[in-house]
Design a protein around this nucleic acid. Sequence first.
DNA 1: TGGCTGAGTCTGTCAAGCGGACTTATCCTG
DNA 2: CAGGATAAGTCCGCTTGACAGACTCAGCCA
Lengths: 164, 164
Amino acid sequence: MSTVLDEQVPEAMNWSTENCTISRIMEILGDKWTFHVLRELFVGVRRFEDIRARAGIPRQVLTERLAGLIERGLIRRHPYRLAGQRERSEYRLTTAGLDLYPVLVAMIQWGDQYLPLAAGPPIEPRHRGDCGERVTVTMHCEAGHDPAPRDVAFRPGPGAERRK
Amino acid sequence: MSTVLDEQVPEAMNWSTENCTISRIMEILGDKWTFHVLRELFVGVRRFEDIRARAGIPRQVLTERLAGLIERGLIRRHPYRLAGQRERSEYRLTTAGLDLYPVLVAMIQWGDQYLPLAAGPPIEPRHRGDCGERVTVTMHCEAGHDPAPRDVAFRPGPGAERRK
DNA sequence: TGGCTGAGTCTGTCAAGCGGACTTATCCTG
DNA sequence: CAGGATAAGTCCGCTTGACAGACTCAGCCA
């Protein structure tokens, strides 16, 4: 069933994609290996060899992705020294990196719903310390509602630019 | 400043990455073009040529990404016909696709904080209809707290597998 | 002195992305 | 009916990046 329509241009067609927030984030995160690296750091694996072996990343790619994440300010190098060994580096999330938590939690939540495993979720975000309960993300608006996905829409904001 | 430590293995090292939820999602989303396509669909741009031109995707890549998203169930083809033209296809988000809203909102929220534009956000998630207020995501745990990023940790869940 | 180890660098191969040209199907106009 | 327009692709050759596997380097230990 196809409906005959008069041309009705979606509002978004008038706005540029040049400065879109999603694009600018994708410059940083838009790559599967970067996300694998972040996952390792989020679960506490911080050393080159450990990350490489667990995530299965080619060494060269890992080197390059770590450098990119440092440059973008999501992680920092932190020297450490095991007893009887020379000093080496590990990589830790900065505050900016840690603030990606809601993104990761939202993804895991989606994955648990749409790509579930018979055995249950392999990884769970939890409130640290005494509480220990599961953590989820929800959307809510400034008027205090909790809108469902269908009730949310992306609109151009003050920084939107018209297209040429 | 580096501290001398005894070897202390992060707990995550014991768990397999094979079935990790993040990895499985990255099979679907872990690619910058896929995200660009989703952005277009989320803002209401649904036709091949419009998506291609706005996102700057090579045609071949777009064809392939749309096919992948259909196969994964995030979007569906929907025939339409403009007055005086032949029938063509457009692409729409399924419920599974729409349920990525919290992920996109979380990303935009991060981007607005760490990659801000002088002119303000170019795109804003808003509650549709009468309300119209800005939408944000927050993390909260089942005990009713709203933990900060530093107070959240990923732990192995029931589906976690030990590493070989 | 020689060996071990973590953290890389180097090298050649191969798949993927890329821009630009071409194709196809259907509609409208003359 | 011929010709032109257009959306949605496909085809082509070039270049870039991923990849596996070998090699390097620095400091520690025996």
